[in-house]
Every structure is written in C-alpha cells, then in structure tokens.
Amino acid sequence: MRIRGVGLVPGCDSVGIVTSSFAVDVQGGTLAVHELAGDSDSPTTILAVHGITANGLSYATLARRLPGGVRLLAPDLRGRAESAAVTGPWGLAAHVADLIAVLDHFGLDRVPAIGHSMGAYALALAAARHPDRFERVVLVDGGIGFPTPPGADVDAMLGAVLGPAQAKLSMTFADQAAYLEFMRTNPAIVETEALGPKIAKDLQSYLFHDLVPRQGGVLGSSCVPEAIRSDGADTMIDSEVLTAASQLTMPGTLFWAPRGLQNQTPGLLPPELVESAGLGPRVRTEFVPDCNHYSIVFADHALDRVLNALFG
C-alpha cells in the first residue's frame, strides 16, 4: 500500500519533508517505509536503517544528495514514528526480519544499504545472516561491539550514552518549539542544525516526525521504551550482534566520528575500538573529521564519503 504524506503531527505547523510512504506487513503489525528519493522505475535502490531513537526521515539530507536514478527506502523501524504501533518482539533480530520483509515487499533481491548508529548494528546483523541480500554495506558510527561488563546496568549505560535522546522518552512538550528547545540542550544537535538552512529543516523534520499527540493536548516521543531498551541491550550484550560486522563477506565501509551523541570526545567508537574490531578484509574503516554522531549523516563532507562508499 502506498500513502502520500509528510508523516508529521496532525495540526502542527512544521517544515515538512514530503515523502511517499508504503505499508509493509511484518510480525506484529505494519511497518512504514518512506521513499525519500527515486521511484519504482529507478535502476538502483538503497535501503537505509536509522538509529535507536530516530526514524526514517533522518536520511532526508542523504536523499537530496543522491544522483538521478537512485531510490532511497528508509523504514521507520518497529516501535518508532509511523511504525510505533507494531508490537513486539523487540530486539535487533526482529529488525533483521523486518528489513528482509521490506526487501521482499519491493521485490528487491540484493541492494546496497546504509545503517547509522543502532541501525548499523541491525544492518550488520542482517548482512551477516543474509549475505545474498546485500550488495555492499555502509556502517556509520556504529556496528562494532564494545562488550559490556557482566552485571552492568544496561539502563544506566543507555542513559549515559544517549543523553537527551533517552530522556525525551519520558517527557511531554507543549508544542514542537518546546521539543526543539529541549533537543537544543544537546550541543551535538546545535552543531548539526548550524550546518545550513536546508540541513536545519531536514534535521527539524526528522525530529518532529518522532512526536505524537498525548492526553491533555501535549506532545511526546513516539518511541516505545521497551523497544529502545531491548535494542540498546542487544548492541551491548548480544554476542552475535557484537561480532556481526566481523563476519561480513560483501564489501563494506565503517565510518566513525571523532565526537559522540552529546558532542563529547572520544565519540561512540573510540579509535582503539575501531582498530581492535577484527573486521574482515572486505570491510574498510574510515575516520571522518569535524563531525559528531549526528552530523556525520548530515554534513556535506561526511556524505561525500558515504556516497562514494555506497556506489563503490
């Protein structure tokens, strides 16, 4: 089913990214998949997998940079945005099944794909389990494991890593402006928004796409807390997830940023972790300077590298 729309909160003024959205049946409900570039006649289709509290519209800037003849399909993963109504199971194995369902729905045998943050872990796991479905993979600031000590508090670790992205799950906001003001407490968001007016609009539309009406006329995050926790735990303690990137047999690239989710140094993937990841000979690593965990999928100089990797 194809639905034309912008995927924003009803009745709210917003900058909007107009997309074509498709409904894909998955276990537990219907997954929303956004066509951010190209169409069914495009000779090349790229599958894009977003981060843990993000949504498919996080790839709008990449979509605008794609050459002609390229289609970009970006699902809202289960438990987020327009796929928030999908019930469990949660966890990265469920995302893998959903991604394969998306490829099957569109009749795609084998595609290049990109995953950012948690999406990189989900994509690496999908490509390790289904190597025949992925032509090449691009992992952006995620996808390699940093094992968690036994007995570690996963919730505390998620809160420390995600910062405002985690805190927003239990908050409500009077309107989009209040939500944006809160997100701007994160210097990584401020830096990304400052990259230019078009990028700022892309960023804001992606952020607003997460908002849903709550009782009392306020807005809140669409993210299902149980989904976020399960997915986050998998990136920390699931041995198959932690080693998936080292099992890849197709060409791949891992990009990593110097600064993290809150603009801190070191970033999510410190240099020593990248060096010790044990990636196979088909996967190269590339440091992207002058960016943080968010701006690496918005900044021109970072997307130049991403595009080169996607098209070989």
Rank of each mutant, 00 (worst) to 15 (best):
I3H: 03
R4N: 02
R4Q: 02
G7K: 00
G7L: 00
V9R: 07
G11R: 03
S14T: 04
A23N: 07
Q27W: 03
G29T: 02
T30F: 05
H34R: 11
A37N: 01
S40H: 06
I46P: 00
L57F: 06
S58T: 09
Y59F: 14
T61A: 05
T61G: 01
R65H: 04
G69S: 05
L72M: 00
L73R: 03
S83I: 08
S83A: 04
W90F: 11
W90D: 09
A93C: 10
A94Q: 11
L99N: 05
A101R: 10
D109F: 09
D109G: 13
G115F: 06
S117G: 14
Y121S: 10
L123W: 04
A124W: 04
A124C: 02
A124L: 04
A128D: 00
R129P: 01
R129M: 05
E135I: 02
D141H: 11
G145T: 02
T148G: 07
P164V: 07
S170V: 13
T172D: 14
A174W: 10
Q176T: 07
P187F: 06
K198T: 14
Q204D: 12
S205V: 12
F208N: 15
L211T: 04
L211H: 05
R214N: 09
S222C: 12
P225Q: 12
I228Y: 13
R229E: 10
A233Q: 14
A233C: 11
T235D: 09
T235A: 08
A244H: 07
A245V: 06
T253P: 11
L254D: 12
A257H: 13
L261N: 15
L261M: 15
P271A: 15
E272A: 15
V274F: 06
E275N: 13
S276P: 03
P281I: 04
P289C: 04
Y294P: 01
D300W: 06
A302F: 04
R305G: 07
A309E: 04
